[in-house]
């Protein structure tokens, strides 16, 4: 099938190359450093806390392994790849002997849940509102929405986060101050309810800014679509306005927006660092901040590798979805 051969396979190859280069760079960067990261890390760790001799040895060994200080450069490189492919990222320094993989594994779902959902909500909201406002620029509601969102847009998301935090946990204590959920994880209404309850404010702080951004983009695109020949023709044929807005205007503005959604989704893997810290949300951003504070190299390396794979994979998935959205990509 030509679609597979000409579209999917080249993109898979591209994906593999990006990951290969990214991981190789992650391997090389510690090596460029003039200081010995192992001694540094060991010194820092043993300066503030005492580790048992076995732990110290295991740590040194794992550092030797991970930074590849055994054998020559090539064997080190191959060993490094072996570890990465096995998902073995070594133990976390700050929470020894829990492995980095375990800690990322528990943090990542919080982040994916929070950022994934808020990104998708903001994308959809911004797309639809922007489309409507672009198509009906003279209605009072479209002006109201536009003025509101344009004034919100320049406010950084962490300021929005602080404002929301103060308003709704201190002055009007409706929402919880920190945490991700209440009770033990289960498929019960009360647990899922608590997820929504705890996630609401962090998500809102992210959604507000992202919606404003998406709205501005989407409105500009919709204004262009509005004067396109096919929209004019549909208007002359007196098609219902609702159908014109959704099937003719927004459907066409989606094409560039989908690419942008990919980039926003890829950013998930870096975590919304500040949001998670402000709301004490147990995701990757929180983990990364702690790792940086504690010089937890294994953890930082782990999150770096994850974001390389995550960004590459998200772009791949969107590339693969593109033919579903734009028929012109489907057939050539």
């Amino acid at each position: 099938m030509t679609l597979l051969k000409e579209y999917i396979v080249p993109r898979l190859i591209q994906w593999a190359i990006v990951i290969f280069i990214g991981v190789s760079l992650t391997f090389l960067i510690p090596r460029m450093s003039p200081i010995n990261p192992i001694d540094q890390a060991m010194g820092r760790l043993t300066a503030f806390q005492t580790l048992s001799p076995e732990a110290t040895l295991a740590l040194r060994q794992s550092l030797m392994d991970l930074y590849g200080l055994e054998g020559n450069l090539l064997t080190q490189y191959l060993n490094f790849w072996g570890r990465v492919l096995r998902g073995d990222l070594g133990p976390s320094f700050s929470a020894f002997p829990t492995t980095v993989a375990d800690m990322i594994g528990s943090g990542i779902w919080w982040t994916i849940g929070l950022l994934g959902l808020s990104t998708i909500i903001a994308w959809t909201l911004g797309l639809v509102l922007g489309g409507l406002a672009g198509y009906f620029p003279d209605r009072w509601w479209s002006k109201a929405v536009e003025n509101t969102l344009v004034s919100i847009y320049p406010i950084p998301y962490y300021i929005v986060a602080f404002i929301l935090l103060m308003l709704f946990t201190y002055y009007l204590p409706i929402f919880p101050l920190v945490g991700g959920s209440r009770g033990t994880a289960s498929f019960s209404w009360s647990y899922i309810g608590s997820l929504v309850y705890y996630g609401f404010l962090p998500a809102l702080s992210l959604v507000i800014g992202a919606t404003a951004f998406r709205f501005i983009m989407s409105k500009a695109l919709a204004s262009t679509e509005r004067s396109s020949d096919y929209v004019r023709f549909a208007e002359i044929a007196a098609l219902p306005k609702r159908r014109i807005v959704f099937r003719y205007v927004i459907r066409n503005t989606m094409l560039p927006q989908v690419t942008d959604l990919a980039l926003s989704l890829a950013a998930i893997f870096e975590g919304a660092l500040i949001t998670e810290v402000v709301f004490g949300y147990p995701g990757l951003g929180y983990l990364l901040l702690n790792a940086i504070n504690a010089s937890d190299y294994n953890m930082i390396m782990g999150i770096t590798l994850l974001s390389i794979v995550g960004i590459a994979t998200a772009s791949l998935l969107v590339d693969l979805c593109y033919p579903l959205i734009d028929p012109r990509v489907r057939y050539r």
């Binding site: 020949d229 004019r232 003719y248 066409n252 012109r328």
Partner: peptide
């Protein structure tokens, strides 16, 4: 009814 000019872009490209 109305037959538009050109017709290169009068049909919705994604429909």
């Amino acid at each position: 009814s109305y037959v538009p000019q050109g017709s290169m872009h009068v049909l919705n490209p994604v429909r």
